[in-house]
Amino acid sequence: MPIELGSVTAEMMVTHALNGAQRQADASANIAEQTRLAYLESKEKISVREAQAMQDVRTSGVAREIVQHRSVQNQPA
Rank of each mutant, 00 (worst) to 15 (best):
Q75F: 03
V57W: 03
E65K: 00
I66D: 00
A17G: 12
G20P: 03
V57S: 04
Q75P: 00
A21D: 01
T59G: 00
G6D: 14
V8E: 15
L40S: 05
V14L: 08
V48N: 04
D26A: 08
N30S: 13
R49I: 11
V14R: 10
G20T: 04
T35M: 09
G61W: 03
A63F: 02
T59N: 06
S60D: 11
T15F: 06
K43T: 08
E50A: 12
V72Y: 12
A17W: 12
K43Y: 09
V14G: 02
L5M: 04
T15I: 03
Q68H: 08
Y39C: 02
A38M: 05
A10T: 09
Q75H: 04
E50D: 12
L40W: 00
T9M: 09
A21P: 01
K45S: 07
P76K: 09
A38N: 10
S42D: 12
A21Y: 10
S60A: 15
E50P: 00
L37A: 11
E65G: 03
A51S: 10
K43F: 07
L5P: 03
A38D: 10
A32W: 01
Q68K: 11
V62L: 04
K45Q: 13
V57Q: 12
Q75W: 02
M1V: 11
I66Q: 01
Q73N: 09
Q73P: 01
Q34N: 04
V14D: 14
L18H: 12
I3S: 06
V57H: 08
D56T: 02
A77K: 10
V14H: 05
Y39N: 12
H69F: 13
S47Q: 15
V57A: 14
